[in-house]
Simulated assay, not measured.
Amino acid sequence: MQLHGRIARIPECVEVGDFCLQGFIEGRTLGSGPLRSRTLSPRHTGQLGQLFRELVAIKSDELETVERRCEPQDRLPDGDTTGFLHRLIHFTEDRFYSGHVTQYGTLFDELGVCGAQLDGLRCQSEQLTDRPFTLIHGDLHRHNFIVDSAGDLWTIDWELAVIGDPLYELATHLHLMRYPEREEVRIAKLWQAEVESVLPGSSLNWEQDLPILLAYKRAQSAFTDIIRTALALGPGPEPNWRILPRAAWKLQRVLAAAQEPLALRSVPTLQQVLSAYANWFRSSAARSAP
């Protein structure tokens, strides 16, 4: 299914033989230069609201002919928001913890994070309200919004798009954008009004369910950012000492945000995070030494 024509400001894709070429949008990301404000202008607020409307207007049954990665028997029934979150939790545990525990297990251990800590979120997901599934971009952060020369907001990088709970779109957006509290409330209410105007019921019980999905996003970030930080500090045998303090500070904030969702007994101090990476690099170098 072509999204061009359904989403107002999206790069056009052209098929050339076996390849699909995406058009280039000239401009700046919303997260660069003078555009780095933590609040949205009225113009961009309106265009974000339009994007929310356009996304929920594309319902799951319209996407039946789209090539999908999962097998038909693995596809969830429309509206199964609990099953949707269960799949996300399993993906996080399997891909980012179990799939990397051989390489990063000692680092996870020293930072007090393990896959079993996601079980609490699985229990909370049983409380979710069913909502009709729609198209979800899944990665609406500042660097995936391009502001062109006319000041219009374009949405790029659709490779994480999925079919699922539309409230997950809002949770992901709020988590990634790091709005101030008042702006977060304003954008959440904007989302609710916009999606209900197109698909009644798509925001059902959103105020009760949003904290659960936000908790998942904070927990997910703990797993992904532990690995990303190690990669950013590499390749070793010592971490990049110049960037380690800031990287450790950022990760310490991520772990603090994940303390409640993951039921962490304590949040590592900045010094403990620094030591964990220094120790991991040294032990990795020792294991790989001839």
Rank of each mutant, 00 (worst) to 15 (best):
T106C: 08
G151P: 09
L35Y: 11
L160K: 09
F84I: 01
E93S: 07
R131Q: 03
D80C: 10
W241P: 00
R6V: 06
G234H: 07
D209R: 05
T229Q: 03
Q252R: 13
T82R: 15
F96A: 01
F84C: 11
R36I: 06
D225I: 08
A258H: 04
E238N: 12
G138H: 10
L140E: 06
G105Y: 10
Q252L: 06
T102W: 12
I10C: 09
R43W: 02
L76D: 04
R218F: 07
S60K: 12
I243P: 02
S283C: 04
Q192E: 15
Q73M: 12
R186W: 01
D225V: 02
S266A: 15
E183P: 04
L107A: 03
L167V: 12
I58F: 02
P166F: 00
E67A: 15
L85P: 06
D165V: 10
Y179M: 15
P211V: 06
D61R: 15
H143M: 14
L262S: 00
G33H: 05
A188N: 05
R36L: 11
D152A: 08
L35A: 03
G31P: 12
Q259R: 14
W154D: 08
Y104M: 05
W191N: 00
L170D: 14
R53F: 01
P268Y: 03
C114L: 13
G164Q: 04
R68V: 14
W249K: 14
S266V: 04
G46K: 01
